[in-house]
Simulated assay, not measured.
Amino acid sequence: MSGGTEADPTVLHALDGGVSWITLNRPEAMNAVTWDQRERVIALLADASADPAVRAVVLTGTGRGFCAGADLRGAPAAGRERVPGDVARTIRLGAQRLIAAVLDCEKPVIAAVNGTAAGIGAHLAFACDLVLAADTARFIEVFVRRGLVPDGGGAYLLPRLVGPQRAKELMFFGDALGAADAERMGLVNRTVPAGELEALAEEWAGRLAEGPTRALALAKQLVNASLDSDRATAFAAEAAAQEINMTTRDANEGVASFVERRAPEYRGY
């Protein structure tokens, strides 16, 4: 489902049936993400938000790794000795921008985790709206093994997905978590045999691509914001989202199809 370009063979991209397929393609490095790859993925996610032809996004990888973390060897050289503030700036403009690009994408994003997802690679998967995993996939909070603090939004994402105690267990020990255990914890929506992963991703992405795209975008925003909101704020946001959504063609089509007892035909606007 993915086709690359000569200009950027390490990130393959294809648009098929309203689905933007973004595939990390450095299998020899378990898809450890470089600076250039990160910037390309961020750009493709921004394009997906703006392009009405894109109705859903799938993130995946080639080979045995989904994404084995960050590979900083391709980062632009600073040209000077590191000074206080450089590390925080690098994280803010790098790993955090990548995770924010997934969270802020206006189209639903599916992670099809084909193999090891470690460090920022695990957080890239957890930031997606839906996570599908091959039964051979593993998730590793690898930071503690290197004496590092989790970055790329890990301490934000994990407690919201599995609670603070489970999040601390994963971060404190850095043990590899198999796909089946990740599903039981609630980090993965569905685990399937490796040979069935692409077909399931196609099926789920296809269903999303046929859905009311703007309603899905607003629902995504509401759910993400609800985790940081009080009830009054969340209820006000919900009412405002419904008000906005009722101006769309798809919302009116949904109501009309119900009244007319027929299947709706959503067009994404």
Rank of each mutant, 00 (worst) to 15 (best):
A7C: 06
P264G: 11
L187T: 01
V11R: 14
N252T: 06
R207E: 04
G206F: 03
G94C: 04
R145E: 03
E196C: 08
G154P: 01
A205Y: 01
F235Q: 06
L157C: 10
N25T: 03
V131Y: 08
D16R: 09
R231L: 07
N31T: 13
N224Q: 11
H13C: 10
E265Y: 15
V142W: 15
L98Q: 14
G163P: 01
K168H: 06
Y156S: 05
R55V: 09
R262L: 03
A29I: 01
D230V: 01
A77C: 10
A43W: 04
G268F: 11
A133I: 00
L93M: 09
L103Y: 04
L59A: 12
Y266T: 03
T247F: 15
G206S: 05
R38H: 03
L208F: 00
M30S: 04
E203M: 14
V144K: 05
L157I: 02
D47A: 12
S20C: 02
G79C: 09
W35M: 13
L12K: 02
Q165E: 11
M246Y: 09
A256T: 01
L103H: 03
N189K: 13
E253V: 01
L200P: 00
D228P: 02
A122D: 12
V192P: 10
A137E: 10
L177I: 14
L130Y: 15
P84H: 07
A263F: 12
I244M: 10
V11K: 14
V33H: 04
A112R: 00
A209C: 06
V102S: 13
A14M: 03
L187D: 01
K220M: 13
T191M: 01
P150I: 10
A77P: 06
E106K: 15
A101Y: 04
R261D: 08
G195C: 15
A118N: 07
T34I: 08
G74A: 06
V57Y: 11
H13V: 06
A134F: 08
P9N: 07
F143R: 04
A263Q: 11
A217R: 14
A101F: 09
V11S: 15
G74K: 00
G94R: 04
L24D: 04
C67L: 02
L132I: 09
D86F: 13
D71V: 07
N245E: 09
I42E: 01
P264V: 13
G17Y: 00
R89I: 08
D230F: 07
T62L: 00
Y269F: 15
G65C: 00
A56W: 06
R249V: 07
A100G: 11
G61D: 08
